[in-house]
Simulated scan of single mutants.
Amino acid sequence: MAAAAICAAAAPAATAAGDFPAKPIEFWIPFPPGGPTDGSLRTLLAAAGKELDQRVVPINKPGAGATLAAQVMSQTAAPNGYTLSMVAANIFRMPHLQKTPYDPLRDFTYIIGLTNYRYGLVVRADARWKTLEEFLAYARANPGKVTYGAVGIGSSGHISMEKLGRAAGAKFTFVPYKGGAEEMMALMGGDIDAVLDPGWGQFAVAGKVRPLAIVGDTRFARFKDVPTLKERGYDITASSLVGIVGPRGMDPAVVRKLHDAFFRAAQDPAYLRSLEAIDLEPVHLNSADYTRFAAEQFEREKRVVQQLDISLQ
């Protein structure tokens, strides 16, 4: 009788997982519409919808250094698989910079890791600086006069530029933006002098911006003439794993369905082309590996914030 009771109690959950998804899924994007990540994600969601035989609806929720979407989801969404969010490195760093309403190790279900942001430092094509050395020399001679943008306070771009300023003996003025499209328009419109972020490749190809340095271990395939910061003597790199999370407490069977659907969708040629267009490379972390990565990344970000001695309190 006890065994029968247990089976009966488990049956509704099993049935729910078997029927999932029975309605459209909301996917929260932590950036405004129109940016490079937004466009690439929409391509992925279209492919995932075909795999799941349900629409995966993109909903833009920018703010809080690109962590607002996941924050709100963790506080308001049911753990039924019908509300998901994209996250990147900021989600692990922000709790070390200020008090946050979420705990990244407790409040999310990690579903799949998809790709890595690759960063670069760019200026307008008509800027006075042709090289990184000229840019840094000017910044040293004019403390605070050079302005730069990145997506959100505490973002990887913000942290990397602060590292560069300290290493080079230069002081920059930071201007945060909510998304990549917004910051690139600000750069090309002359509102800021530089951007340190991913997603600028198409503007460089079009001759609108000039990359000065790649903030990574290797040069970009499309920009083989652009050196890395390491090559110029600054041991600074930035990367940010892009992944999908849901609220904590999700049914493992639903997590598996979502993982497998997004894994197959990530092989879609249109999505792969969208990554190539913004100089990103596909990666894959399954749910278990992504959960382990989250714990490790949380500790790495803690060390970085302590070394820089910064706070947003």
Results as ranks from 00 to 15, higher is better:
56 V>W: 05
56 V>F: 07
57 V>Q: 10
57 V>Y: 00
58 P>A: 06
59 I>F: 07
61 K>Y: 08
62 P>K: 01
62 P>M: 02
62 P>F: 00
62 P>Q: 00
63 G>A: 08
64 A>P: 02
66 A>N: 12
67 T>P: 13
68 L>H: 07
69 A>K: 04
70 A>F: 06
71 Q>N: 12
73 M>N: 02
73 M>A: 04
73 M>Y: 01
75 Q>M: 15
77 A>Y: 02
77 A>T: 04
77 A>E: 02
79 P>F: 00
81 G>E: 04
84 L>E: 02
84 L>S: 07
89 A>D: 14
92 F>Y: 15
93 R>W: 03
93 R>I: 15
94 M>I: 14
94 M>K: 13
96 H>M: 13
96 H>D: 10
96 H>I: 12
97 L>R: 09
98 Q>F: 04
99 K>H: 08
100 T>P: 04
101 P>M: 03
101 P>F: 01
102 Y>C: 07
104 P>Q: 00
104 P>T: 01
105 L>Y: 00
105 L>D: 04
106 R>T: 09
107 D>L: 02
108 F>S: 02
108 F>G: 03
108 F>E: 02
108 F>I: 05
109 T>K: 02
109 T>N: 05
109 T>F: 02
110 Y>D: 04
110 Y>T: 10
111 I>W: 00
111 I>Y: 00
112 I>E: 00
112 I>S: 01
114 L>M: 12
115 T>C: 08
116 N>Y: 07
117 Y>S: 12
117 Y>T: 10
118 R>F: 02
118 R>T: 07
119 Y>I: 09
119 Y>S: 13
120 G>F: 01
121 L>Q: 08
122 V>F: 02
122 V>W: 00
123 V>S: 09
123 V>G: 11
123 V>K: 09
124 R>E: 04
125 A>N: 11
125 A>S: 14
125 A>R: 13
125 A>D: 08
126 D>T: 15
126 D>A: 12
128 R>G: 15
128 R>Q: 15
129 W>N: 14
130 K>S: 15
131 T>H: 11
131 T>V: 14
131 T>N: 12
131 T>M: 13
134 E>F: 11
135 F>W: 06
139 A>C: 09
139 A>N: 05
139 A>P: 07
140 R>K: 15
140 R>P: 09
140 R>T: 06
141 A>L: 11
142 N>H: 15
142 N>F: 05
143 P>L: 00
145 K>E: 12
146 V>A: 06
150 A>D: 08
150 A>Y: 05
151 V>K: 01
151 V>P: 07
151 V>Y: 00
152 G>F: 04
153 I>Y: 04
153 I>T: 12
154 G>H: 06
155 S>L: 10
156 S>K: 07
156 S>P: 12
157 G>Y: 03
157 G>W: 03
160 S>G: 13
163 K>G: 05
163 K>S: 09
164 L>N: 08
165 G>T: 07
166 R>F: 06
166 R>M: 11
166 R>N: 13
